[in-house]
């Protein structure tokens, strides 16, 4: 039984999400784009603030690119499994790929001067910044992310 975001984060488990979906896609950026747009539409329909939507979109983009490019090595026969839930106060998503996984602790610090020109690590850093929680599974081929929405939607911050 895979862990859900609620299990990992100690969120209340008796609250039903307003939107919940499980989607499996091939390692195709166009399919990933379709899911991202679908999620964005759900968030907009639920009046989630612009900044929260920006944050979620960016984290989704980075996580899906990681899954397709690094996890599945762009192999179209390999799948990406996406499960997401939208609650009144937060967005949860679980993204798993068919790759062998990686150790997020081994990724070099992209802000260190000697690493600034290296392509790796920056996406991970953005995911951690923009989401409330980012947790990788033990194998490193799956990530759980959660974004708690800002309460005040009428101001910028």
């Amino acid at each position: 039984m895979p862990l859900t975001v609620a299990d990992t984060m100690n969120y209340p488990r008796d609250v039903q999400p307003a939107v919940a979906a499980n989607v499996t896609i091939s390692s195709d950026p166009a399919e990933a784009r379709r899911i991202q747009e679908e999620i964005e539409r759900h968030l907009q329909a639920r009046h989630v603030s612009e900044h929260d939507i920006f944050s979620i979109k960016l984290a989704l983009e980075e996580a899906l690119v990681n899954a397709i490019k690094h996890g599945n090595q762009m192999d179209r026969t390999k799948k990406v499994y996406i499960s997401y839930q939208i609650f009144a106060d937060r967005f949860d998503v679980q993204i798993t790929d068919d790759g062998s996984g990686f150790d997020p602790n081994e990724v070099p610090d992209p802000t260190a001067f000697e690493n600034l020109e290296r392509p790796c690590g920056r996406g991970l850093m953005l995911m951690r910044h923009y989401m409330t929680e980012v947790v990788f599974n033990q194998r490193g081929n799956g990530v759980l992310m959660s974004k708690v929405f800002r309460r005040n939607d009428n101001g910028k911050k």
Binding site: L58, E61, V65, E117, P119, R122, G123, L126
Partner: peptide
């Protein structure tokens, strides 16, 4: 309006 880390990589290469 939007930019990902992959785009940042290209800007770094361009700068270089």
């Amino acid at each position: 309006e939007y930019l990902s880390s992959a785009a940042l990589g290209k800007l770094i290469t361009l700068n270089k």
